[in-house]
Structures are given as C-alpha cells and as structure tokens.
Design a protein around this nucleic acid. Structure first.
Lengths: 213, 213
DNA sequence: ACCACTTAGTGTCGTCAATACACGAACATG
DNA sequence: CATGTTCGTGTATTGACGACACTAAGTGGT
C-alpha cells in the first residue's frame, strides 16, 4: 500500500541574502522580479526546493542559476513560515546568507529575473514578499558571525592585507575597531598566516595574509 | 486562474528535543512510536505542519498534544532535509529545542505514541529516523545558548537559588564552574534580581533570585 | 541544649584580554 | 628630493576570569 498524503504539503523554497564588499561598503544582491506576483519589484534571489535535493544544495543551485557564482560561504539564517507571506500558496522559506569576494561580479539574470543588481545597504528599494524582514535577519546573523573574523575571508580575495580585513570587519559589524587592537585580536585568534608578499598600492606596501590552516 | 503546483511539495514537520533537569542531570523527552515506520522505537516528539500554522506554533502545539505541557523556551536548532531521512516520503524536519522546569512532569502519550518517557543523556536508546543527529545538534545549540545564562531560567522554577542556577549551567554546558566566579559572572551579567525570601532546605537557607527585568 | 554536618556566602591575588593612545617606516607621486 | 599617505608597532590601564580557604547559618540527631 503506498503512503497516503495525510498532511498538507506546503511549497518549500530557499531565499538567499548575498553580500559582498564594494568600495568598502556592504552590498546586497537583489533581482527584479520578471513575473507576478510583485512583478517589477526587487527581491532576494531564491527558488523552490527540488526533489532529492538538500536545502543547502538548493540555495547553492539557485545562487549559481541566478548569479552565475558559487557561494564562498553559506550560512543558515532562519525559517519564514507566516501563512500569508506568499499570495499564491503556502510557501515556507528557508533563508540563507552568502558571502562573495567582491571580484566575482558577472551578474546574469535568468528567466525569472528581469535583472540582478548590487545595492548598498543605505539605498535599498522596497522588497517583495517579506524579504525586507529576511534581509534584516540576515544582517543580524552576519554581524554575529563576523565577530569570529574568519567568516570574513569569504568577502576578500585569497590573499588580503590586514587593513582590508579590518575594513570588512567594520563594514559588517558596524563597530569601529582600533587598528592596533584589531591586529592583536587577529593574532590571538590565529586565524591568519602571513605570506612573504606585499600589496603594492599608491603608498607603503602592506603585507599580504591568507587564511590559516 | 488558480495557481498551479509547479514545484514538488515535501511534507514539513517539526521535531522537538525537550530538555529538563531531574536530580541535577539533563534529561530528554522521548516517545515510543506506536506506528510504522520504526514502530516500537524511541523518537523525538514532533509532527506535521498544519495549514495556516507557523512553524513555531506547530512545535508548541505538538509539544502540548504529546506531553501536555507548554514550552517555557523554544529555540530553533536546524533544518534536516536529507532526501531519504523518512522512508515514507520526502519530509523536511524543522528541529527545535524546548526547556521545561522539572516540575511539570505530567506525561501523557497520545495516539501516535505508545508512551512518553524522560531519558538521562547517558542512557539513550537508539533513535528512529535521524533523530540521533537532531538530538546531537540540539545539545550543541543548547550548550551555546546556556553560556548566556538567562535561557537556563526556563529549566528552573520562577524563583531559584544561585546554586540551582549553577547546577543547571554545569549540567547543560558540561563545564565545571567555580562557585565564587559563577556568582561574580551572574552579577556582572545582571540577569537576576535578588528577592527577600529564602529557600529552606535541610541546611543553611539560600536566598531566592528571580529573572531580572 | 549541644554538637556535628552540610550548604550558603564572601575577598584577594595573579593573569590575561580589551581599551586607549603616538610615532617612525616605507613607498608613490609630483 | 620633498611631501603625502598608508603601514606597522609598544606600553600603560582597566576590567574580566581563574584559582584559592574560610566564616555563617541553619537542620538533624543525640
């Protein structure tokens, strides 16, 4: 006897708040919806769970499909399950946040999205569905994780200067860190290893570091 | 035109790891399954999401239905989405942990459960589905939260002694705290307020405290 | 009434992490 | 070669954390 469906089956989707650092400021990736509901509105990228797919994989796949990039870091944020949050039908949204190094910026909208674009957090448009709330939760989660420093590596190139790392820390947490204390903290954490190379910019070169172990 | 179901719709359930403190040791509440699959095996309480019900409410409802108690504290743990985790069909499990004060122990099994019983963590039976993994994650989550101290209030009566609080802290985190340092930490956190009353036991009475603000 | 026992409650010191603060070094540019 | 800008470092002070031993207050038994 086949299993009978005794329980309601909601749709399940992942939504991803993708962050990157551009000119020292945190930006979030939004897509303009190409279909109803909320056609023309901006929304977080995301999509429905496929059969035989884990939730994490769904988030990675959607990210790849909608932006063409692989997430460096993918962290769970929360579930959103308010009954009316999607006007079509019951949709449970599993929210993630992803961090990308600022280089990979080849955005390519797919069929569901009219366009994809980076927005600085200070200039957010009104978002579709409850995506404003999801984004706010994602920012909280990100800020909490960033205090461990090592999640920030996902925002930076493989080798980076301590000034870059501190800039990322400040942009994400909002805190202002004192340079010498920040360097001592990083040294105590032991999460970076110094390399023999230096970044040559327009002034004194800065030593390059990489993620430890 | 009604919305058409373009995406697979998995079942969605909540599973709850319910903890309490009995004789100073952390216990978890398990039910013996009364139906296939895993009939006769022990499992975490939980059940399927109802229409128009938030995930949190589902967890609270299942807890009330299966044990007759209202959760003092309900915290999200993680989602479990491995495709084969339920042999019947695709089920996404949203895991929560709940804390109960040790008094409320009127366990009443419902139709789905042959019986409900508290198990000390040292004497766990083999669990149905992937509930062993869920429980392990719940314990990690609990231990992390317990370092903030205030979640522990949910394990204690409304007024409690500092020794009780420390006992809960040690049982949950596994750490051994030094009495004077623990008291200093609690004072620094400011999360308790002393009352004018004392607990009279078999020796010197201990001042009762309550959750602050 | 007294004693023995058990738990409650407190103060100090050493160590270490977090904060604040100012200057010389290295390179690019004009 | 002078100037400007970023890189990079040492020290003193404070507050948290960990280890440590004793007195205080009640119960229970004799």
């Amino acid at each position: 006897m086949p299993f009978t469906y005794e329980h309601p089956h909601p749709a399940v989707a992942t939504d991803i708040a993708v962050f990157t650092l551009r000119r020292g400021a945190l930006h979030v990736l939004l897509i303009e919806r190409g279909a109803e509901p909320f056609r023309g509105a901006w929304a977080l990228p995301g999509g429905f769970l496929q059969p035989d797919e884990e939730l994490d994989d769904c988030a990675r796949r959607e990210l790849m499909e909608e932006t063409g990039v692989a997430a460096e870091l993918l962290l769970p944020v929360a579930n959103f399950s308010a009954p009316g949050r999607d006007p079509r039908e019951r949709v449970i949204s599993v929210a993630y946040l992803a961090l990308l190094p600022s280089d990979e910026l080849k955005l390519q909208a797919d069929t569901d999205a009219a366009q994809a674009k980076w927005f600085p957090l200070a200039e957010l448009p009104k978002l579709a569905f409850d995506h404003g709330a999801i984004l706010a939760r994602a920012l909280d989660t990100l800020s909490a994780h960033a205090r461990q420093v090592s999640p920030l590596f996902a925002l930076l190139p493989p080798r980076f200067t301590l000034s870059q790392l501190q800039g990322a820390y400040e942009a994400v947490t909002g805190d202002d860190a004192e340079k010498r204390n920040f360097r001592k903290m990083v040294a105590t954490l032991g999460c970076v290893r110094e390399t023999e190379d230096f970044a040559h910019g327009s002034h004194r070169p800065a030593r390059l570091y990489e993620a430890a172990a």
